[in-house]
């Protein structure tokens, strides 16, 4: 018996297929694009092909993410907050604070000792500090988004970009470039802007974070510069990044599908 989790985010659509023993047997990440039904069909096809099973072998499917109600053959839809909390418990057991920065959402989740969500906070007014923000910044800096993570190496300044608005931050970058500010300093300023917004989300869910295991999920966790800035602002040596931070939501959804089918 297999269990499928599908996470339909604003930037990417992810699927994770697990077996009865919670082993990940297949996973897929594709851009969501404008036609999310196509993305859902693609990731489903991918995991079926990778695992060599047929659709009938899937005992249960749980969908999550902003497009969770778009999955036609789902057995349930669960929010990304619950799914990320569930997924990270499997990937990094003992996580108490989870920072998830996805395409247009950033969130902090406080997880209890029993693995249940105790509190969560999300960005409300704007997508600043999320994957979309990083895309805009990469565009303004004229670098590939994948190279953004190492761009701040060696930067020292205290520069922090405006974290209120993606568009304003983008024009701020343009004027910093025009003023001759080094690219690495701008990149550091951008990472610090994301870190400062995320810091306040974390503080909203847990006043004290000393001694708590902090992990990060979502595509932005793959950006080492952001992770470094977050470590600095949270005053912690370690932020655990699971092997596949971008599929934690889908993994959580698959685990919930398995639990509900028990």
């Amino acid at each position: 018996m297999y269990f499928l989790g599908i996470d339909i985010g604003s930037l990417s659509c992810d699927a994770v297929l697990i077996d009865e023993s919670k082993n990940v047997v297949a996973s897929s990440v594709v851009p969501t694009g404008v036609r999310n039904l196509e993305a859902i069909a693609r990731v489903t096809k991918d995991v079926l092909e990778q695992s060599g099973i047929s659709e009938q072998d899937i005992a249960s499917t749980i969908s999550t993410g902003y497009g969770r109600t778009r999955v036609a053959n789902r057995d349930g839809a669960v929010t990304e907050i619950t799914c990320h909390a569930k997924g990270i418990q499997e990937a990094v057991p003992g996580t108490r604070i989870l920072i998830d920065i996805g395409g247009q959402d950033s969130k902090a989740i406080h997880i209890g000792e029993n693995g249940n969500v105790m509190d969560f906070a999300m960005n409300d007014k704007c997508a600043a500090g999320t994957g979309r923000f990083l895309e805009a910044m990469a565009r303004a800096l004229e670098v590939d988004i994948l190279d953004l993570g190492e761009l701040d190496r060696g930067a020292q300044s205290d520069l922090v970009l405006s974290s209120m608005c993606t568009v304003f931050a983008e024009s701020e970058v343009v004027s910093l470039i025009a003023n001759g500010t080094e690219q690495r300093e701008i990149a550091r300023g951008m990472n610090r802007a994301i870190a400062s917004r995320t810091f306040s989300l974390v503080k909203r869910v847990a006043r004290e974070i000393d001694g708590l295991t902090i992990s990060m999920s979502g595509g932005v966790a793959l950006n080492s510069g952001v992770v470094r800035a977050l470590r600095e602002s949270l005053k912690t040596d370690t932020i655990h990044i699971p092997e596949r931070p971008d599929t934690i939501g889908a993994l959580g959804a698959a685990l919930i599908a398995r639990e509900r089918n028990a």
């Binding site: 669960v78 929010t79 990304e80 619950t82 249940n116 969500v117 105790m118 969560f120 999300m122």
Partner: peptide
């Protein structure tokens, strides 16, 4: 947010 809150 409503759904996540009720799930929580």
């Amino acid at each position: 947010r409503f759904e996540a809150f009720t799930e929580m």
